[in-house]
Design a protein around this nucleic acid. Structure first.
Lengths: 342, 342
DNA sequence: GGAGTATCCGGGAGCGCTCCCGGCCGGACG
DNA sequence: CGTCCGGCCGGGAGCGCTCCCGGATACTCC
C-alpha cells in the first residue's frame, strides 16, 4: 500500500489496513452492524482511534442519500427577528432538539425576495434531508416553493393562508389569549385594550381573535381598543401611547408578546399610570429573561419553544423514516402564569 | 439508456444525454469552464433548466474537497445568548456575509461540555471548510481543540487568554469605553460607576479596563464603583440596584451593553432618579432596536456587527484560497453616539 | 455423515461528480 | 502540402463510502 502522506485525513481503507481487516468489515464495525466478530470490531475501533479517523460525510451521504442535516428556515423580517427573544429561543431549541436526534442544523433566513431564491436553490441542492419552517407570513412564497421540491417539511406556526395538507405544530394562540383576557375580566377590568402583533402571521391573528371574542362574550365592545405593532420594544411603546391617547380610561391591556409589553410598561410608567393599580398588563410568551424580570413582574401566557420544536422534530423524523404521517395541525396547550402585573 | 423514473432527481448524465453531449461537456458548461462551444453550452443550460437539474453537492464535494459551508460557532452560555440582541445580529450578519461569498452558514452552539464534544466531532467530520468563532470565553477549550484539527478559523472577539498566532477581528472595546467615560467626565460627572459584562470574555474585560483607566487619568478613584453583570436585562437591573445601594451619590453610569442599560434605566426610574438629570447613562453596542428607543434615548458606543463579520469572512476566504495571511488581530474602530441619556 | 443454517468476512459495484488525458477537427504557417 | 497548434469534445479514472453477494467456516439436526 502506498504510504499516505501525514497531513491527509485517513480513509476507511487506511483504518481497515491498519486493523488488518477488509474495508467492508471496518465499515460494519464502525456502523455497528451485525455479523462482526468482537475481535475484529475491537481492532477496527482501536485503529480508528489511533489514526484519528472520522468518516468523510460527503462520501457517505453520496451513497446513503442522507445528509444528516436539517434546515431551519426563519421566514421573518429582519427587525422582528432581531428584537424578538422568542426567535432566539427557537433557534437554540432547534439546535438542541436536532442534535439529540443526531442531526445538524442549517439556519436559513428568508425574508427578502432574493433570500427566497437563495433559500430554494439551497434546499434543492440536496444539502438537507428535511426542513423546519418557522413563522411564515401571509403571502410568503416559501411554502408553495417547498411543496414543489418534495422535501419533508414541518411548519411551526401557520401563515394566515397556509393550505391544508401540510404538517404543522402550533400553540393554542387563541385559547391562550382567551385565558389571558378572561383573567382580566374576572378581576374586574372592563376597558381591556390590546396591542396585537403583525397581522400577517397566524399567531398574532389568533391572539387578536381570542381577545376580541372574549370581550364580546363578556359584553364588552372591542371597538377602538386594539392597536397593531411589530413585536419590537419600540413598537409596543408606540402602540401603548396611541392607545392611551385614544382611550385614556383603559384599565387593562393584553399585549401580544413580552418584548412589546416591556415597551408598553415604559410608556405606562412615563404616563404616570400605576401597574397594576391603574392598568393591568398581561402578555404572551412568558420569556424567562423578560416576564419575571420586569417591574412589576409580568403576568404572561406561557409557551415553551422547546416543546414546539420537539414536536416538530419528532414529526419530521417520522417523515424521514418513511412513515406515512397524516398531515394536519398539532396544537400545543398554553397556560397562564399570573404575576404582579395583573 | 435506462429511462430514469420520474421522481428521481436528474443527474449530470441525464442532462448530458438530454442535451446530446457528453457528461464532461455538460459539467464544463455548468461550471462555465473554458473550451465549450457556445452551442453546446446553450444546449446544456437549456437541458438543465428543462429537467430541473441541480447538482448533487455530496458528489461534488467528494471530489473537490470543498463543501461550501462555513461553521459559525457561538461559544456562549445560553442565558446570555438568549437575552443579547447583539448575538442575534451577529447570526444574521454571518448569514448575509457568507451568502454573499456563496457559502452556507452552519450554526453551532457550544457552551456545555457535551456541546464541545459534539462541536469538535462535527467540525472534524469535514462538513465545513472553515470556522468563525464568536466570543470564546476564558478557559474555553474550543480554541485549542480547533487548533488541532487544522481547519481555517477566524475568531470574533478574543478570549482573555487567547494565544498568539490566531486570526481575530475585534472592536476597539477599550477605546470605546474611554471615549464614553471621557464624554461623561467632560460633561462634569464625577462619580461615574460602571456595570461591566462577564469578566471571562475579552470585550467586557477591555471595556472595564477602559473605564478604569479613564477615571484614574481624570483623578477619580474607581474603587467600589463597578459591578459585574451577565449581559441580561435582569442582570443590569440588579447591578444598578447594588450600585445605588452602595454609592447613593453616583451621578453617571457606564453600562457594558444596551440590554443591561435597559435594566439599569428601569432600576433608576424605580428609584426616582432622573436620567440624565440625576444620573447620566452611557452604554455599549448602540443596538438599533434598543438604544434610540428608550426613554430617554441612550447615548451608546456604536459598533456594527456586520462590519466585524465582514472582516472575518474576508479573512477566512483568503485563508481558504490558500493565501498566507499573517495571523494577528484586526481591531475595528467604534464611535460614540450621543443622545439624551447623557 | 450430508444437508441445512447461522456467523463472519472480502470483493466488487456503484453513488454523481470533477478532472486528466488523449483524440479530433480546422486554420495558420513554413 | 505537411505540420503544428489551439479550440473543442468524450472516455475513463477515481474521490470515500455503503451495500449486495458469494465464499468460508463452524455448528446443528435428522
Amino acid at each position: 500500500m502506498v504510504p499516505r502522506s501525514e497531513d491527509e485525513r485517513p480513509t476507511l481503507e487506511d483504518v481497515a489496513a491498519f486493523a488488518g481487516v477488509s474495508r467492508s468489515t471496518a465499515s460494519r464495525a464502525l456502523n455497528d452492524d451485525a455479523y462482526v466478530s468482537a475481535r475484529s470490531r475491537e481492532k477496527v475501533l482501536a485503529a480508528a482511534r489511533d489514526l484519528g479517523y472520522s468518516p468523510n460525510q460527503a462520501a457517505r451521504s453520496l451513497v446513503t442519500r442522507r445528509t444528516g442535516a436539517i434546515a431551519v428556515v426563519l421566514s421573518e423580517p429582519e427587525a422582528r427577528l432581531l428584537d424578538d427573544p422568542y426567535r432566539t429561543a427557537v433557534m437554540r431549541a432547534g439546535y438542541r432538539e436536532l442534535a439529540d436526534v443526531g442531526c445538524q442544523m442549517v439556519l436559513l433566513f428568508s425574508d427578502t425576495r432574493e433570500d427566497l431564491g437563495r433559500t430554494v436553490r439551497f434546499l434543492e441542492g440536496g444539502h438537507v434531508d428535511g426542513v423546519l419552517v418557522f413563522a411564515p407570513h401571509r403571502a410568503d412564497p416559501l411554502p408553495r416553493a417547498l411543496r414543489l421540491l418534495k422535501l419533508p417539511t414541518v411548519f411551526g406556526g401557520q401563515a394566515a393562508d397556509l393550505r391544508r395538507g401540510v404538517h404543522l405544530v402550533d400553540f393554542d394562540n387563541e385559547g391562550g389569549a382567551r385565558r389571558a383576557v378572561t383573567h382580566l375580566v374576572e378581576s374586574g377590568r372592563r376597558r381591556i385594550a390590546t396591542i396585537a402583533g403583525p397581522q400577517d402571521q397566524g399567531a398574532p391573528i389568533d391572539r387578536l381573535a381570542g381577545w376580541r371574542k372574549t370581550l364580546v362574550d363578556a359584553g364588552i365592545d372591542p371597538a377602538g381598543l386594539s392597536e397593531e405593532a411589530d413585536f419590537t420594544l419600540a413598537g409596543g411603546a408606540k402602540a401603548m401611547a396611541a392607545l392611551l391617547a385614544r382611550v385614556p380610561g383603559l384599565d387593562a391591556v393584553f399585549v401580544g408578546s413580552d418584548m412589546m409589553a416591556v415597551g408598553a410598561l415604559r410608556t405606562l410608567s412615563d404616563a404616570g399610570r400605576d401597574v397594576p393599580g391603574d392598568v393591568a398588563v398581561v402578555s404572551f410568551d412568558d420569556n424567562a429573561a423578560l416576564a419575571p424580570a420586569m417591574t412589576p413582574p409580568l403576568t404572561s401566557v406561557h409557551q415553551d419553544p422547546r416543546e414546539q420544536v420537539h414536536a416538530m422534530v419528532s414529526t419530521l423524523m417520522r417523515l424521514l423514516d418513511g412513515e406515512d404521517v397524516a398531515p394536519g395541525a398539532q396544537i400545543l396547550p398554553v397556560s397562564l402564569v399570573v404575576r404582579e402585573s395583573s
